[in-house]
Design a protein around this nucleic acid. Structure first.
Length: 427
RNA sequence: GGAGGGGUGGCAGAGUGGUCGAAUGCACCGGUCUUGAAAACCGGCGACCCUUCACGGGGUCCGCGGGUUCGAAUCCCGCCCCCUCCGCCA
């Protein structure tokens, strides 16, 4: 949600910024019109209510004295009818206003490159060098089944397309990656680990911006107002929904491992092979809640924490600043981490780190009380994958493959493998 | 799932139809006193919306949503959450 003050005072600017992200700018005009309308109605309504309250109070006084109240009661009855009518009107306008407000994407930060899609993304830095293979490298969808650690057919058998079963060292590698990431962020980067529910309600999804617009991408539980989480961002960011935190408690930094579930409507035909685009995947997520003054510093910090995982795993990657047109709905600025995948001869997204500024905070009621005791202010919320475990497993398999089809286990993961150094078909 | 109890301000806790946005205590902030602190005393102390340059004014909120009434924290209906016991279960 955007700030009401901004929409009122600078609607031209908002029109422009929203159009830059491919949203319908006419909605801004609609919002402004509805808002003006609402305030007019509200003024009239409150005046009627004031008169009604006053009369009711006098009825009480008169009755205590045993005086006649017939006329006043008749007057209030008349006011009551008019109040009811106005209330219905205000409720209708409120509904429309809310619906419109929830449909606006966030406004991009000034440092974000303008553009309609990923073509306009800006590469911030490239870290590490793609490995030169002395043999023909394989993609993970060949390596995994050959090693017997990834089984796409059996995943499809028990669930369907885009579900995978991990066996043996594959399952252990996924688990090792998750534990390694959690341990790193909690012990080195100052995050508090949290295990949130993997199922959330409608309010939570509105809070972080998935609803009402993107319901098609979610798995909904039949017969319930429950959804499987598409990312830990949803339950974790909403943990403090409708709360007012003390500034002393900030920043709040959480790390959470969760599975993620995405219906991915509209993605058919893309990444049909392998683990890249699944209906279920594991992810370690970082979430910050912080003050507006510190949120961009926090974005750099959060991104650096995610990068640290790739650095320690010694995987080549680059950092990309997404363009205005390529960013997600709620983000003001997003860095994607793209890992090098030899099997595809390309950098592929493995993390997305965003500052949502107050966009989610306004929706979810995330506020803090400033140290000086002033009025509560909206927090800034940030989130980022650190990292998506499935895609990290892909990167490890493809980057650490050997000529004989085995896969070396990265140094930092070996403690999680009981010292094992290599994944072979037998493991 | 069944039975019972309960949801009131930051916390505790009164309040069962009108003068209740809500007693009281604690916490917190300011002041008096004090060399300083504590104690004592005095005062202040919720959120949101509309309006105002400002001072201020008005409206809404006692879990949520409806209803009864001139008037609801208080009465009625539905829902949610918490607690206790039973059942089931990892």
């Amino acid at each position: 949600m955007l700030s009401r003050d901004l929409l009122r005072s600078d609607s031209e600017n908002v029109r422009e910024k929203i159009a830059a992200r491919g949203a319908d700018a006419d909605l801004v005009d609609r919002w402004v019109e509805l808002d003006r309308n609402r305030r007019q109605l509200l003024g009239d309504l409150e005046e009627l209510k004031r008169r009604r309250n006053e009369a009711s109070k006098r009825i009480g006084e008169l009755k205590r004295k045993g005086e006649d109240t017939e006329d006043l009661i008749a007057e209030v009855a008349d006011l009551k009818g008019r109040v009811t009518g106005f209330e219905a009107e205000v409720a209708a306008v409120d509904g429309a206003l809310e619906e419109t407000a929830l449909s606006f994407p966030n406004i991009a930060h000034e440092s974000v490159p303008a553009g309609v899609d990923e073509e306009a993304n800006r590469v911030e830095r490239v870290v590490g060098e793609p490995r030169q293979f002395s043999f023909e490298s394989k993609a993970h969808w060949d390596l995994g089944p050959e090693l017997g650690i990834l089984d796409f057919e059996r995943g499809a058998k028990v669930a369907g397309a885009r579900f995978t079963a991990y066996f043996g060292a594959g399952a252990r590698l996924e688990r090792a990656l998750i534990n390694f990431m959690l341990d790193l962020h909690t012990s080195q980067h100052g995050y508090r680990e949290v295990q949130p529910p993997f199922i959330v309600n409608t309010d939570a999804l509105i809070g972080t911006g998935q609803l009402p617009k993107f319901g098609d991408d979610l798995f909904k539980l039949e017969g319930h107002e429950y959804y499987l989480i598409p990312t830990a961002e949803v339950p974790v960011t909403n943990l403090h929904r409708q709360e007012i935190l003390d500034e002393d408690e900030l920043p709040v930094k959480y790390v959470a491992y969760t599975p993620c579930f995405r219906a991915e409507a509209g993605s058919y035909g893309r990444d049909v092979r392998g683990l890249i685009r699944q209906h279920q995947f594991n992810k370690v997520e970082l979430v910050h809640l912080t003050t507006p003054e510190t949120s961009y510093q926090a974005l750099e910090e959060l991104t650096a924490s995610a990068e640290r995982v790739l650095q320690l795993l010694e995987l080549p990657y680059r950092v990309v600043c997404l363009s205005t047109g390529d960013m997600g709905f709620g983000a003001a600025k997003t860095y994607d981490l793209e890992v090098w995948l030899p099997g595809q001869n390309a950098y592929r997204e493995i993390s997305s780190c965003s500052n949502c500024e107050a966009f989610q905070a306004r929706r979810a009621g995330l506020r803090y009380r400033p140290k000086d005791g002033g009025k509560p202010r909206f927090l800034h919320s940030l989130n980022g994958s650190a990292l998506a475990a499935g895609r990290t497993l892909v990167a490890v398999l493809e980057n650490y493959q050997c000529e004989d089809g085995s896969v070396l286990i990265p140094e930092v993961l070996r403690p999680y493998f009981g010292g094992l150094e290599k994944i072979t078909a037998a493991s």
